[in-house]
Design a protein around this nucleic acid. Structure first.
Lengths: 207, 207
DNA sequence: GTCTATATAGGGATAGAC
DNA sequence: GTCTATCCCTATATAGAC
């Protein structure tokens, strides 16, 4: 399956400086879970299986996470933080120009974090359930924000569709990076996708 | 969730002329399953739940399908047939021009059948497992064919990336049709997506 | 063709020893 | 922080009545 390029990067080690063993274990759990959740799906992945790859048993995981859903939530939050930060620069109804610039600036970091995006694409149902159960905590969600931007009726329909296509282009390339595009260096791929985005949303770049 | 536009169209009623009750029930099972597999995911959807919506019980489903996986397989085959037919016109290593034309001709039918595409996007893991277990029966798979086309090293990398972006654009619009783009008529949406594809792969259309 | 009842298995989660 | 043992629940699938 993923024999060529590893999809999973090292996780952002939360608040751990270097040697905190518990944080390291936590990160290992997230790493392995991310990989399994992508390749097998969240539901088909059992805690027993995760524990097996870690080298210890199912129950040990409960020391680090309250539940299986909690692991998914932690991974979800990594993407959420990524998106929150990215969308912060956008107003309530961004212009397609702003949208193009946003994608342009994000692409290389999206490529680095592509496992998180693929996780979401392939486990939307599980993540939606997560939201339902958590009640919308403080959870102004990324996806909701995303839909809001693309729903903006101030913009002509064809522009909104182009914005969706631009995002779809990025996701399409992302999904194939390290697989069909394993031969293309990440930087190069980023440049090419940026070119595609500007072909879809042809606005002059000011600076 | 899907309160606005129903994602699921009426299924192709296999070999049933009109009144064959068993074929109708079969189609109903597929309809309901498709809807549930998309909204909840394949794994989280139980046969009990499907039967509930049908108005009878779990065991009755086994009269029409040998297993739960069989239902997914039937749905998968609908997309497979769609794709087989579509890709038939392509040679082994199509030019980007042929690719653009293919997408162009396919978009409106893809929009009609978008539930099948979304099913695949959101249940890739389950479908891959299906393939593993079925052994590759006669199964020259759609996805493999797809990767093959985009892996063609005869083409420059940027062209291949553009082809992937074009497909991603279609999928991106597809995923949002009836949701964010519920206000855009299907025909109009199709036209806009076609325009996006030709912006990504700008080749003159001959006929 | 649809039902009830049941066999069987596996997963999530908890308790408590070390 | 990791282990064993166990509880409880739900799911697939089968057998057999109607």
């Amino acid at each position: 399956m993923e024999t060529d390029t590893p999809i999973v990067e090292t996780e952002s080690h939360q608040a751990a400086d270097a040697e905190d063993p518990s944080a390291t274990t936590r990160a290992r759990i997230l790493d392995i879970s991310l990989e399994l959740f992508i390749s097998q799906g969240y539901d088909k992945t059992s805690l027993r299986q995760i524990a097996e790859q870690l080298g210890f048993t199912k129950a040990a995981i409960y020391y680090h996470f309250a539940s299986k859903a909690d692991i998914l939530m932690a991974l979800h939050m990594q993407l959420h933080d990524f998106g929150r930060e990215a969308l912060a620069s956008l107003g309530d109804d961004p212009t397609p120009e702003q949208w193009a610039r946003l994608l342009d600036g994000l692409i290389s970091r999206m490529l680095q974090q592509r496992a998180l995006f693929i996780l979401h694409e392939r486990n939307q149902a599980a993540i939606e359930e997560l939201h339902r159960e958590s009640g919308a905590l403080d959870h102004e969600d990324l996806q909701a924000r995303f839909r809001q931007v693309l729903s903006n009726k101030e913009l002509p329909a064809d522009t909104r569709v182009r914005m969706a296509c631009a995002f779809g282009s990025v996701m399409g390339a992302l999904a194939l990076a390290g697989d069909v595009f394993a031969d293309v260096p990440s930087d190069t791929l980023g440049t090419m996708v940026r070119s595609a985005v500007s072909a879809l949303l042809p606005y002059p770049s000011a600076d």
